[in-house]
Design a binder for these strands. Structure first.
Lengths: 219, 219
DNA sequence: AGGAGTTTGTGAACGGGAGAACAAAACGAG
DNA sequence: CTCGTTTTGTTCTCCCGTTCACAAACTCCT
């Protein structure tokens, strides 16, 4: 095998590309499980639901990991992407708010298989103490600081009702969490150095409704 | 009040703007509940977490609903955005897959308050029959066609495991569903006229991990 | 009525991402 | 070894979205 180009690690990958890397990672895992050892950009793009030119350009930001005339080695590329995203590391995560959504998250196997380890489930409701979800004991929200410090947690997940979310975020930020995944339907205010990503179930439906309405209008 | 500009209804609103309209809608609802009757683009932008120039440009695609020197009438603008998105209508929705996530969705009050009405919960597992979630009886997946036809359902939600998702989507499409919200971690193949939006819990975490890793590297 | 102060709506510049298209590189056949 | 075939990596162009900056329009005060 030829020496691969491995660009210096201080390059910046476009945000749009970063958002697609996990999709490629999943597609490669699927291919790997099917026993495929090599694939072309065309095949991989098909599996990921994107166009092949875009896929190749995305991969080119990581380095030159393919072989012209042949394609990509599935395992090798999969590892390179995983390393780039950071999921070859272990990421301790706390989940706050153990309603249906919090439980769904705690049970989701897709986290552990990608390096995310749920170190604690927290809930403010005393009635939930001693409950065990996904093999993890539910603990009082007040233990947040202790847990974050002990496990060196950088990523927090908020699955509480909207009214509690800002307070939870403030406490998380205060004790050193620097990335937050927010499921509460509210815009969080956090310092600039903290990354927040928001998943809003009803917004997605509303976007569908808009297009649906337009379809109905032109039909 | 002066006559408002109301552009012809066959205009096309940029996709990026459509994705933000639900956020503005929520911010306006919050303002309204706080008793605010008028707001400036600056205030609304702050509540929505965007910059005010972008907000004004977004709103300008809908029409000219503000008053220079004054701002926007909260109730009036809220109604206009709701109408534009289509959430003043009633949207019957079916949810397939009643695991933790499906239950979270069924219980989510943010749906009903925005015109989405869950007409059925479906699950392939016979053990779940007769269960009642969020006041709605869980019915066998085979009833899909019947329900979609009876209630004229256009929007389907998939909250099943990945292996079942493509089959569910195929059945939905076959009986007339034209918009799908997919929570299963898989790229769905559907005809071009069907809209699919995907929410992937682990992808969001992976994007955070990437940035977290970069922060750690430069620190 | 007129002028000062606000705030919207939009034209114009700018930046980033998408897609087409092609040169460079690897492989295989003869 | 040479030529044809395949597929990557990259350049170039176009389009969409963001942001700036300002004219237009409205209110309030004198």
């Amino acid at each position: 095998m030829t020496a691969r180009t491995s660009p210096d690690s201080s390059r910046d990958i476009p945000e749009a590309t970063v958002a697609r890397l996990p999709i490629y990672l999943r597609a490669l895992t699927t291919l790997s499980e099917q026993g495929t050892s090599t694939c072309s950009s065309e095949e991989l793009a098909g599996a990921a639901g994107v166009n092949s030119a875009k896929l190749r350009k995305d991969l080119s930001y990581l380095g030159s990991y393919g072989t012209r005339g042949v394609g990509y080695d599935v395992e090798y590329l999969r590892y390179q992407i995983a390393r780039e995203i950071g999921v070859t590391q272990d990421w301790p995560v706390v989940i706050v708010g153990i309603g249906n959504l919090g439980q769904a998250l705690a049970n989701y196997s897709g986290f552990r298989s990608r390096g995310f380890r749920v170190v604690a489930l927290l809930d403010a409701d005393p009635a939930r103490r001693d409950e065990v979800v996904a093999g993890i004991e539910v603990r009082p929200f007040d233990h947040l600081e202790q847990i974050v410090t002990d496990h060196d947690v950088a990523i927090g997940v908020i699955a509480t009702p909207a009214v509690a979310a800002q307070d939870v975020a403030d406490r998380m930020v205060a004790c050193g969490v620097t990335s937050i995944l927010n499921f509460a339907p509210i815009v969080l205010a956090v310092p600039a150095q903290v990354d927040v990503r928001k998943v809003d179930l009803s917004i997605e439906l509303q976007i569908l409704a808009y297009h649906e309405q337009r379809k109905a209008a032109t039909a």
